[in-house]
Design a protein around this nucleic acid. Sequence first.
DNA 1: AATTCGGGGCG
DNA 2: CGCCCAGAATT
Length: 346
Amino acid sequence: MDFKDTLIIWYSANKRELPWRKTKNPYHIWLSEIILQQTQVNQGLPYYERFIAQYPTVFDLANASETSILKLWQGLGYYSRARNLHTSAKLIVNEFDGEFPNNYKDLIKLKGVGDYTASAIASFAFNEVEAVVDGNVYRVLSRYFGIDTPINTTAGIKEFKSLATSLIDTEQPATFNQAIMEFGAIQCKPKNPDCSICPLQDSCVALEKQLVEVLPVKLKKTKVTKKHFNYLVFIDPHKNTLFEQRTKKGIWQNLYQFPLVESERSLNAEEFHLLNIDSELLDISNFDHSLYNEADIVHKLSHQHLYTKFWIIEVEELPKEAIPTKTLTNYPAPVLISDFINEFPF
DNA sequence: AATTCGGGGCG
DNA sequence: CGCCCAGAATT
């Protein structure tokens, strides 16, 4: 029995029941694939259910505000996915009359849809013969064929896409793609796979050469940078506060936060008070403050560690764009901020 | 080709 | 602590 048949038989016996596998609706499949980018199934699942419930069609998503989409996305990370989702939904509605692109070539033109996602939608929704190559597929192929080409290089990307294309079951591309990914997620998993029960154990090069824990090869990523964040939590007598949108490009773009002052290092109260906090709308030359957290709250991201302090500043008056603290949870915010909002007794 | 984008889970 | 996750866009 060949590679594809073994995988498909294994899949039929071991697959999980997942909601996006029960539909051919390209919009729903698209939503699931964007949500699942760099995200484990268990983490993405509740977000998928909420998005389907709140935005049942591409028209609902296109007509929504970006802020409400980001709010529903809150906590999932990589927020450009949500912004691109909205951009592409509007394109599909306004330019394609709501007709979803139905082939790889057109799908990959959508913002946020690259080779993997275009292949996934094209095969799952439209039965196009296009091989998916995600993290699972890299692992399965590199191990089974004993390939040590680094997967995060141009050469590796080309080599594995070509190999996957040569292996796909052209009669059932959707099932093959699901099968190889599920196999990577459950059987040929990153750590401590149980090769003794693997249906491919007799022909797996990595198992034979004891390379299972070595493959796939991945070039090391860059080191993390450290930053020091000081959030200014103003509170006036009416329990209003300042909460503003991050408009700059970069991390957490278009999410909301308290006014932020970065510093070179962690500040104590005296050093903080000496900061020249400049604001046209706010005279805070003489304010009283207290420190919410004595020790820095360390928020760790893939390539940044954020050492954070929240400074509570009680003032008599705030500019008119101040909002009631009760409404803070209506806005999309980074986990770092929303955790504070949920914790702090306003 | 290298970097940037989040957050959570796991050994 | 480092690596991984149904990757893509930007530099």
